[in-house]
Design a protein around this nucleic acid. Structure first.
Lengths: 125, 125
DNA sequence: TTTTCATGTATCATATGAAGTTACATGAGA
DNA sequence: TCTCATGTAACTTCATATGATACATGAAAA
């Protein structure tokens, strides 16, 4: 598929698609071809890649909305709060990341297909 | 302390302080007095109030940066991802909230005082 | 060889929401 | 009655994610 087609599917912009796919390409999960007949194709075993891998390929962005932003804040109150909560933040993030590691793209695809079939049956009724 | 003094301490604005403190006042954790000699004072037992209570009083804002935003997305792929990750998000959030419940304001204050003492000794050296 | 169509990427524009600001009403004490 | 505080509405930045534009590069088709 081309970036334009993907963008239409996702309701976004071809350039945004390229920006995001760039990370997946660098990780080797997809390939891109320029020119006529070009576009994107999957380049990995879907059962060997997890959402954890995707997460890492996209730059491991922050998962928590709150947390320790400044390493050594000058505010002593902020320091006390950080001491109290840093382990909790770390554990929650680790939990999330480990859960991402349990979801393969193949599992997602299977679930998607099952639901698409159900969707089709429902529409035919 | 007045909103202005608190704002100076926190490097922010008196109105922002009032906006935030309003939640704590409604929960009964602080009291405010208008007029001459007015300002804010603590109105709770610090050992009986946890960061969980503060979190709730401030409107229980989102703790996770990612997660399910649309309840029933039309995108079947998004639906599959949601089915795969919703429990993980819920668990991570529950973990964080339960940890907030283990930190009392009194514990924070104690830790703050210990560190302030150490800070003072370090400066006197 | 030239045209067409795709990616790659820098740069700019826009939208969204948090934070900050201003303005003014209200209330309490000096 | 004057001063000083909170309570709030309304407005203004500000930061950042997203979208858009422009153009260079590369590959296949005409």
């Amino acid at each position: 598929m081309t970036s334009g087609e993907l963008a239409t599917c996702m309701g976004t912009n071809p350039v945004v698609v390229r920006r995001t796919m760039a990370g997946l390409r660098e990780a080797g999960f997809v390939r891109s071809e320029k020119g006529h007949g070009g576009g994107w194709e999957i380049a990995c075993d879907l059962s060997a890649v997890t959402l954890r891998d995707i997460y890492d390929a996209l730059g491991a962005p922050t998962l928590l909305a709150i947390g320790v932003h400044i390493e050594s804040p000058s505010c002593l109150v902020e320091q006390a709060v950080n001491r109290a909560l840093t382990p909790a933040f770390a554990e929650a993030e680790a939990l999330l990341i480990s859960r991402l590691g349990t979801v393969t793209l193949a599992a997602l695809a299977d679930d998607f297909r099952r639901n698409t079939a159900a969707h089709r049956i429902r529409k035919e009724e």
